Simulated assay, not measured.
Amino acid sequence: MNRTTILKWVTGISEGLLAIPFAGGTFILSMSWTPLLFMFALHTITLIFSIKDKQFSSGSILGMITSFIGAIPIVGWIMHTITALVLLIDASVETKN
């Protein structure tokens, strides 16, 4: 398993945790939206590595968008869920290859 696939697993699981109703939102609010900034940086790093490894990651771009939209309560929850699914499916496909 290469570094891009590992980063997709990590970001997908992290997005999934942020998508847990009430718990994810409470965590984000209690940390003054810092987790969204952290996730933006992690998605950016994943995107850079995926481009270098020639494994383009649309999930990372979606995650970067989600980091900005995540401040909106219901929309953020939906976006975190979608992003987690995209990243985890992408990572599982790469793991099987």
Results as ranks from 00 to 15, higher is better:
residue 21 P to H: 00
residue 22 F to M: 06
residue 22 F to L: 10
residue 22 F to Y: 01
residue 22 F to E: 04
residue 22 F to P: 04
residue 23 A to K: 04
residue 24 G to F: 03
residue 25 G to A: 07
residue 25 G to S: 08
residue 25 G to E: 06
residue 26 T to Y: 09
residue 26 T to W: 10
residue 26 T to R: 11
residue 26 T to P: 03
residue 27 F to V: 12
residue 28 I to V: 13
residue 28 I to S: 15
residue 28 I to W: 06
residue 28 I to F: 09
residue 28 I to Y: 12
residue 29 L to E: 14
residue 29 L to M: 12
residue 30 S to V: 02
residue 31 M to F: 14
residue 31 M to K: 09
residue 32 S to T: 11
residue 32 S to M: 11
residue 33 W to T: 06
residue 33 W to F: 13
residue 33 W to G: 01
residue 33 W to P: 02
residue 34 T to R: 05
residue 35 P to I: 14
residue 35 P to K: 10
residue 35 P to Y: 10
residue 35 P to M: 07
residue 36 L to S: 05
residue 36 L to P: 07
residue 36 L to Y: 01
residue 37 L to W: 13
residue 37 L to K: 05
residue 37 L to R: 01
residue 37 L to G: 14
residue 37 L to Y: 13
residue 38 F to E: 04
residue 38 F to L: 15
residue 38 F to S: 01
residue 39 M to A: 14
residue 39 M to L: 12
residue 40 F to W: 13
residue 40 F to V: 10
residue 40 F to N: 10
residue 41 A to I: 11
residue 41 A to L: 06
residue 42 L to N: 05
residue 42 L to T: 04
residue 42 L to H: 00
residue 43 H to W: 03
residue 44 T to A: 13
residue 44 T to L: 12
residue 44 T to M: 12
residue 44 T to R: 02
residue 44 T to D: 07
residue 45 I to Y: 05
residue 45 I to M: 07
residue 45 I to V: 07
residue 45 I to D: 01
residue 46 T to R: 04
residue 46 T to C: 15
residue 47 L to F: 14
residue 47 L to R: 02
residue 47 L to E: 05
residue 47 L to I: 03
residue 47 L to N: 03
residue 48 I to L: 05
residue 48 I to M: 08
residue 48 I to A: 07
residue 48 I to K: 00
residue 49 F to A: 09
residue 49 F to I: 06
residue 49 F to W: 08
residue 51 I to D: 01
residue 51 I to T: 12
residue 53 D to N: 12
residue 53 D to Q: 14
residue 53 D to I: 09
residue 53 D to T: 09
residue 54 K to P: 00
residue 54 K to W: 06
residue 55 Q to Y: 14
residue 55 Q to F: 10
residue 56 F to E: 01
residue 56 F to W: 05
residue 56 F to C: 02
residue 57 S to V: 08
residue 57 S to T: 14
residue 57 S to I: 07
residue 57 S to E: 13
residue 57 S to Q: 15
residue 58 S to Q: 05
residue 59 G to S: 14
residue 59 G to A: 05
residue 60 S to P: 09
residue 60 S to G: 15
residue 60 S to V: 05
residue 60 S to H: 08
residue 60 S to D: 07
residue 60 S to Q: 03
residue 61 I to E: 01
residue 63 G to R: 08
residue 63 G to A: 00
residue 64 M to Y: 06
residue 65 I to Y: 05
residue 65 I to R: 05
residue 65 I to W: 08
residue 68 F to V: 11
residue 68 F to S: 09
residue 68 F to N: 02
residue 69 I to G: 02
residue 69 I to V: 15
residue 70 G to E: 01
residue 70 G to M: 01
residue 71 A to P: 04
residue 71 A to W: 06
residue 71 A to G: 12
residue 72 I to T: 04
residue 72 I to S: 07
residue 73 P to C: 04
residue 73 P to Y: 00
residue 74 I to N: 00
residue 74 I to M: 02
residue 74 I to S: 00
residue 76 G to I: 03
residue 76 G to C: 03
residue 77 W to K: 03
residue 77 W to T: 07
residue 77 W to L: 12
residue 78 I to D: 02
residue 79 M to T: 15
